[in-house]
Design a protein around this nucleic acid. Sequence first.
DNA 1: ACCTGAACACCGTTCAAGT
DNA 2: ACCTGAACACCGTTCAAGT
Lengths: 236, 236
Amino acid sequence: MKIQPSKIYGPKRKVEPGLDRSKIVAAALDLLDEDGFDGLTMRSLAKKLDIKAASLYWHVPSKQDLLSLLADEICAPIRKPDGTLPWRNQLEILGNEYRRILLAHRDAARVLSSSGAPSGPNRLRLTEMVLSILLDAGFAPQDAVYAGFLLNDYVTMFVSAETQSANPVAESVFEDSPSGVQNWLEALPVNEYPSVVALANHLIKSDSDERFQFGIKILQNGLENHLANRSSRDHN
Amino acid sequence: MKIQPSKIYGPKRKVEPGLDRSKIVAAALDLLDEDGFDGLTMRSLAKKLDIKAASLYWHVPSKQDLLSLLADEICAPIRKPDGTLPWRNQLEILGNEYRRILLAHRDAARVLSSSGAPSGPNRLRLTEMVLSILLDAGFAPQDAVYAGFLLNDYVTMFVSAETQSANPVAESVFEDSPSGVQNWLEALPVNEYPSVVALANHLIKSDSDERFQFGIKILQNGLENHLANRSSRDHN
DNA sequence: ACCTGAACACCGTTCAAGT
DNA sequence: ACCTGAACACCGTTCAAGT
């Protein structure tokens, strides 16, 4: 006969009644902020939850699905822009809002890019906001869809590049000196890369926020122009 | 005394005098086309070259560096657009040219996104082309840099999404029926996602090539508009 | 100079078995 | 219903040792 410890003395798992999807996703988000995308593994997540890795597969079918859940959770705090503003401004505000929530968690953009198409409620809400703004602005259905993906992808891609390496051209070409990159750029053969050499200091500078607003503005202008051409064609 | 096999009967490694970086990169590109990005591992690459994985590290410092080399190799076939054309058209041609070479190899866009900033000769050549077109068009130095990254990132991101899942919204939400995605979209709560539901069939359709050209056109329009505003401001 | 053996420290996932 | 042990089939990378 084995000695049976009283249930009182069991691990008791704190006060929690047990795991569920939402607790797993919450823990995954914490782990992401602590250890980054590469540190988020099924094994490390299990350890954080005081269970074994295999147990996660009772609650979640695969790591891919977990990442989709996590992606949606990251998008939860998105707020809807004031609908009375002109569509240009609404898109600008929404773009900045999306960037804001992506910058709120470490490697969030990487999670979003690796998690496939939006299917959760929060990302669907974001899609709904973009599309409704574009439809209200007067875009044709297919154009609204294309423009929606363009805007969504722009922000995701931008923040992904922005967080993967502070400077889009710098990184570890030569990982030593601070302005080693500029030296490297300026030392390039001028005959072959005249523009790159000429713009060396501008390639280095590249303020992230300013660059983001530049892209938003180009997209606004481009969409406005497209809409104007379409409308005038409709009227003729 | 051990039996020494004659050198004649050695593996002889075919006729190749030995490995070098370029042969490793060529083999990596073959392997990429055969097995995709996830199939490209140091171990499988070594097997293809009839060596052991550890040997690769004598020629290449890390897998990251190998991917950078591979990224540059993928960009080798890029051709320069006719410089006598208007800058709008040059950018459009270059964008399509870049997309073309990315679609020429399996998962090429994933290699490019995971390989960091351009530092090899071919990607630098691509950067040079974009920047010189923009400078010739009359963009201010910093604007040319921002616009260059915008264009480059647009194509990379687009092809990356395009090849990861044929349809940007479809994929495996419900992996069964062909139009199961449309059913799923249309079954969404209309109160919460009216625009998504209304655009369901357009979200499904989404012709890749048409969508790519739409994005290029928006960027063209946006840049043209930006340039016009700047120029008029300079003249006043 | 170039390559291998063998290990280190990991991965995601499965599945019979426990409670 | 929920969790574990133990394995399967992998990873990238290092380094002493071989030739």
